[in-house]
Design a protein around this nucleic acid. Structure first.
Length: 298
DNA sequence: AATTCGCCCTGTCGGC
DNA sequence: TGCCGACAGGGCGAAT
């Protein structure tokens, strides 16, 4: 699922092709994905407006136009792809699997393609989402930070100064499992199921540990590793195991580098113990019972 | 007030 | 081979 590293990878890839591009036409074929605006408002307002900023906040991708803003949340299976004007349609575009080469051409507009922004230079930005958990916000003006969905997000993990953060959020370390806290977007913006498991593994902390029982040193270690696993995800351009794609259709390279997520039943890459899969906070959760004991050993 | 649960949705996979 | 249930899960609103 697209988390901070995936959305940041998409943002970086879209910045060059979209910046300065002007919308000529809007096609929204699944209107229920659009929140807080009428499809006609967006379709009428956007044409003629030029992209002025491509921004990420948590898992949200934000396009600032001259007068309005379009915000995407990719949900579980959302894809944002860009087809330049000279792209030739490739029917195999979506059949690529992890590890395969970048698909050539552009993806066809299929039944899962819900929004196409046509640009005057012939380029196309397409939003595709098989499971339709994604969301599109159309906001008049640039005050997207005030939107209720964006406004309640916690801080950006990569901008964090950890000590002040831990002091400010001390009361958030309550009786809930630490994994549940990491997934809470109002605590910290952008961590999802993959990187929560990765950060907990890197920290040697059991996902079911109650947040308030973490010692100061463990809290510090965990936040440090949250940042490092996110940076690693960005470095390798995101984790593809099913739907996530970069805007050119190619896969991210981080999946094979994961230490925990997707490794249930397989040997721990650190100690060889069989990794356990369980459910925490209603999410599939993988951890190493030896490297991440529920109670400290001494 | 804090926390958990149920729901939305559809492609894929394992079992029979 | 084909059918079917289970599963994947982000985030919101309802229930506890």
């Amino acid at each position: 699922m697209p988390e901070l590293p995936e959305v940041e990878t998409i943002r970086r890839a879209l910045e060059k092709p979209l910046q300065g591009g002007t919308v000529s036409k809007v096609e929204l074929t699944l209107p229920r994905l659009l929140l807080d605006a009428k499809p006609l408002d967006m379709a009428r307002s956007l044409p003629g407006q030029t992209v002025r900023g491509v921004i990420r906040r948590g898992k949200y991708l934000i396009l600032e136009f001259d007068r309005d803003t379009v915000v995407f949340h990719l949900g579980m299976t959302g894809q944002l792809t860009f087809a330049p004007s000279d792209a030739i349609e490739n029917p195999e575009f979506h059949r690529t699997v992890t590890g395969m080469q970048k698909p050539k051409g552009a993806h066809p507009v299929d039944k899962h393609t819900h929004l196409v922004l046509f640009l005057t230079n012939g380029g196309k930005l397409m939003f595709r989402d098989p499971r339709t958990f994604g969301k599109i916000l159309f906001i008049s003006g640039h005050k997207w930070a005030d939107h209720p969905r964006v406004g309640k997000l916690g801080p950006e993990p990569l901008d964090l100064r950890i000590q002040p953060f831990l002091k400010e959020k001390k009361s958030d370390f309550s009786s809930r499992p630490i994994k549940s806290l990491l997934l809470d977007q109002s605590f910290l913006a952008g961590v999802g199921n993959i990187y929560a498991d990765e950060a907990l593994f890197a920290s040697g902390i059991h996902p079911r540990r109650l947040a308030k029982t973490l010692k100061p040193e463990e809290r510090n270690r965990l936040m440090t590793h949250v940042k490092s696993v996110l940076k690693k995800g960005i470095k390798y351009q995101g984790t593809t195991f099913s739907d996530y794609r970069k805007p050119d259709g190619s896969s991210g390279d981080n999946y094979e580098r994961l230490m925990a997520y997707g490794r249930g039943g397989r040997p721990c890459r650190r100690c060889g113990t069989v990794m356990k899969k369980t459910v925490v906070a209603q999410r599939g959760t993988v951890f190493c019972p030896k490297c991440q004991p529920l109670r400290s050993r001494q």
